[in-house]
């Protein structure tokens, strides 16, 4: 019997001003780290905002334990689920100590130095303003603020994308050693590989493939997952090439990836239903062909 996920999206449609940008997504935030991968504009951050209770679904539900977010005890939810946004998410006018203290009840504000120390920062930095810190230090302050309420789950939205690679590695070490569950939103596959046991790939507001991260990246079953993987630059390798047109097909007109898909066929004029295949869930009419090609590459 599997444990109940802390958060679950059930056929969630999200949008702004009445226009949907995430379409009927279902997703469990399970143990071991969950990655949400996709390019800019694919709806990852919108979904994360819904999981944080910052955006109300147009339809569907976000479940927190066995209650929907609408009916849940928000105080308990806020203690359990915290965001870690990019390093630039600190109030530029507040000293970083005050930013961390904001998360604490008045009686516990003495814990600020301890929390800064926990993320590897000199407590003396509490008196500085964000622009007086490096990007890596700012990101650690953001993490310290989230940890102040001892959450069970961190929702990490591109936590390392503004950092250079060496600083990225140190922040990833920190995140990996925290012992909290995590939902990681990123377009960086290396980060997902390191921190997430399960991953979901989003394209144009839809989940196109979900499964164990290692399988997804080694043997993708969706042509978009394969394109994402192949787009990662490698030292000494040929430069990655984008294939097909950049845009997605309009909603409701078949597979959204069709305009960019090198394997598109007439069947792709109809929207593919998600189905189980080789231990993952994939929404593609040509999934078997993509998987077979990936298996051929591996062997």
């Amino acid at each position: 019997m599997t444990a109940m996920p802390l958060l679950r999206a059930e056929r969630v449609t999200l949008g702004y001003g009445g226009r949907a940008v995430v379409h009927e997504v279902s997703l469990d935030v399970t143990e071991g780290g969950v990655g949400l991968i996709g390019e800019s504009g694919s709806g990852k951050t919108t979904l994360a905002r819904a999981f944080l209770g910052l955006l109300t679904p147009m339809s569907g539900n976000i479940w927190y334990g066995n209650q929907t977010l609408k009916k849940a005890d928000l105080r308990a939810f806020r203690r359990d689920v915290q965001p870690v946004f990019q390093a630039e998410s600190l109030d530029p006018r507040m000293r970083v100590g005050a930013s961390v203290a904001e998360a604490l009840p008045r009686a516990e504000r003495h814990r600020v130095p301890e929390l800064l120390g926990q993320v590897g920062l000199d407590p003396e930095l509490a008196g500085r303003r964000p622009h007086q810190l490096s990007g890596g230090q700012r990101q650690r302050v953001v993490i310290a603020r989230a940890l102040a309420v001892s959450p069970r789950l961190l929702i990490l939205d591109e936590p390392t994308s503004a950092l250079d690679v060496t600083v990225q590695a140190r922040v990833l070490d920190l995140l990996a050693g925290l012992g909290t569950e995590r939902l990681l939103i990123t377009h960086n596959l290396a980060v997902v590989r390191r921190l997430c046991r399960t991953s979901h790939v989003m394209f144009a507001g839809r989940l196109v493939e979900s499964g164990p991260t290692a399988d997804l990246l080694a043997r993708p079953a969706h042509p978009y997952t394969r394109a994402l993987r192949d787009a990662v630059p490698r030292l000494g390798g040929a430069p990655p090439r984008a294939r097909g047109r950049a845009e997605a097909a309009p909603a409701g007109s078949g597979c959204p990836f069709r305009p960019r898909c090198p394997l598109a066929v007439a069947a792709c004029e109809s929207a593919p239903e998600p189905r189980e295949l080789d231990g993952r869930r994939v929404a593609c009419h040509r999934a078997e062909d993509v998987l077979a090609a990936a298996v051929g590459e591996v062997s």
């Binding site: 910052l54 806020r78 689920v81 965001p83 946004f85 930013s99 904001e102 603020r145």
Partner: peptide, 8 residues
């Protein structure tokens, strides 16, 4: 940072 405060 406003979203972060709301989440807190």
């Amino acid at each position: 940072y406003v979203d972060a405060a709301r989440c807190l």
